[in-house]
Design a protein around this nucleic acid. Structure first.
Lengths: 350, 350
DNA sequence: TTGAAAGCGCTAACAT
DNA sequence: ATGTTAGCGCTTTCAA
């Protein structure tokens, strides 16, 4: 394979000059720079990343750690991160924590320690204290996206504000009996997210002078199926008569829409449903939702890491996250004014 | 950071011995090996991947190239590949080709050339000739998964056999008028896959003595929405009366199920639907399907690459793919015996 | 502005 | 079985 020596020879300069010319560091005469560039492209020369890393101590590679891959949110974040990293000339090495426990620990005890990465991006991870420690022990810039990691600057939408907005949308349509399908604190990876989203829902109700009824909350995991089941429970319970549902995610919300239909309730005729995410399936199902722009979160996270990697920036300290992340209400077909008669399965059936 | 010298010093041996002891290459006395291992773990030493790569020429890293990330099949393949790679002690660097054209070309012209990877796994890629060339120019083992790449050994299920099986399932239930929602050759990335799947469908029909009716085929892209629309067309057309539908993917099939329901047809009462994939949503929708085990495909692909990377194996030649990949019919609730009266929208409505 | 040369941390001959 | 040593390909002082 062609190396820096070949380029140097062809351009008639030293390897040092080639390095300087191609990297843009140090002063090189314009004419020399051109000669080098020409030689390099003629030979199809591309710097050997490993040799460069060894010499500089910088790998131009960041590690992205995710708990799963098969969830829309994660891939969306990864795509955003990837896009930005590429612009900076960085590679993305993926570490997936699903799988056996020993695979998981092997990521922390082995893979991440090989000095392959300049920085680490942790997506929605619920980590043990020990794992957080080993992340810190890398001595590399580290940011989280989507889930708070103790002692790690984390990028996240305001989960309280997001469900508050969704709930307010329903309130503004006249709904007063609004159910909530939220993450199950017992069963979810993350404790904070479902709790915050529930708080946002309750906050909106209280501000509207409505005391939240615990019976109107039903826990679920963040899947369509779980949302479906939760909705069946909520809609089948004769003592409560929700005219609207706010789900903590779009997948749950879609499950809820399907459940309503299976029970003979029309959406939004008898029941309004809103989710959180703007999942790729949301347009197809006509689901009203709050977009949380996960791709953007990935991009922002990368920008923070890149800042921290600048020699100008504080050594290994990621700048504090100040800007709140944007989220936007998207109204589609699943939410409408409250029906005159509160909906219930009975009324739909006759 | 602690290096090999520190370990050597602590263990009272030379760096060469440390290297040998830790890598398992070359002969080391058991007692020495233990001493070294103890010293290494005491110091928390992990080999610097870049230095090792530079010295050996092997990176212990493979590049995985995907056209998108947000499709279930890709992430499933990646997960499988990742799992296996980890067992071999390899990292996975992800290259995503969605995004602008210049980002795409930058992957081939820059990123992949940095000698970061020992091998490349290309997932369901429709590549230009030039792109295939630059992949070959890497001089690294290369395998494809899911989509044939000219001149590249590719792992794929037998697409003809898969839809043939799905169609035969419907035939065995007594269906005779079977529609097909297949990939649109004009609009899809890959030419072969939709064509082969259609062939399998037609083959099954012909073997059952039924001449395929072109009117029973409707093209779509591999999404739920597109499957929904295609099903509406197929089911709304009064001149054909399909009692069953085979879709080229589960997402299309789910779309078709939803379309049928929206038209007042019950599945499987009035219409049977079968897909291909065993998508994560298939169980929830009760969809009968043919599992193509994408995770397994990813694992297999990695095994091929690892074989090719063995010095014993042919230099950069990936062994020919001989074993056919497994696929399995999974019968759920969306397929049943043909109704006595052919279903149509009219019959359902009155 | 450019070149010479000393590493970066590890591995793999080659010696012993 | 272990140590010595010369690189791997590049970057970056230090000199010129």
């Amino acid at each position: 394979m062609t190396g820096i020596d070949d380029v140097a020879k062809l351009a008639g300069v030293s390897t040092a000059t080639v390095s300087r010319a191609l990297s843009g560091r140090g002063h090189v005469a314009p004419r020399t720079r051109e000669k080098v560039a020409a030689a390099a492209s003629q030979l199809g020369y591309v710097v050997n990343a490993d040799a460069s890393s060894l010499a500089t101590g910088r790998t131009r590679n960041v590690g992205v750690v995710v708990p799963f891959l098969n969830r829309w949110f994660y891939t969306a974040v990864i795509e955003g991160a990837q896009r930005r990293l590429m612009q900076y000339g960085y590679d993305l090495t993926l570490y997936n924590l699903s799988g056996h426990d020993d695979e998981r620990s092997s990521v922390f005890e082995h893979f991440l320690l090989r000095k392959r990465v300049d920085a680490v991006l942790a997506v929605s991870l619920e980590l043990t204290e020990q794992e957080v420690d080993s992340l810190h022990a890398l001595g590399r810039p580290l940011v989280g996206v989507g889930g708070p990691i103790p002692g790690v600057p984390t990028l996240s939408i305001d989960d309280v504000a997001v469900t508050k907005l969704a709930t307010e949308h329903l309130l503004s349509l006249g709904h007063r009996v609004i159910g909530h399908i939220g993450g199950d604190v017992e069963r979810e990876l993350s404790f904070h997210l479902p709790t915050n989203r529930r708080h946002g829902y309750e906050l909106a109700l209280r501000e509207a002078g409505i005391e939240p009824d615990p019976a109107l909350y039903y826990p679920a995991v963040f899947t369509m199926e779980s949302g479906y089941q939760a909705a069946k429970q909520l809609l089948g319970e004769p003592r409560i008569r929700p005219t609207a549902l706010v789900a903590a995610s779009d997948e749950m919300a879609i499950g809820a829409m399907l459940a309503a239909r299976d029970m003979g309730l029309s959406v939004p005729g008898d029941l309004s449903v809103i989710g959180i995410d703007n999942h790729e399936l949301a347009p197809f199902f006509g689901l009203s939702t709050v977009d949380q722009h996960p791709g953007l979160q990935g991009e922002r996270a990368v920008e923070l890491l890149m800042e921290a990697l600048q020699p100008s920036g504080g050594a290994d300290s990621v700048p504090a996250v100040d800007q709140p992340l944007p989220f936007d209400l998207i109204v589609r077909d699943s939410t409408a004014r409250v029906p005159l008669q509160p909906a219930a399965v009975e009324s739909a059936h006759g």
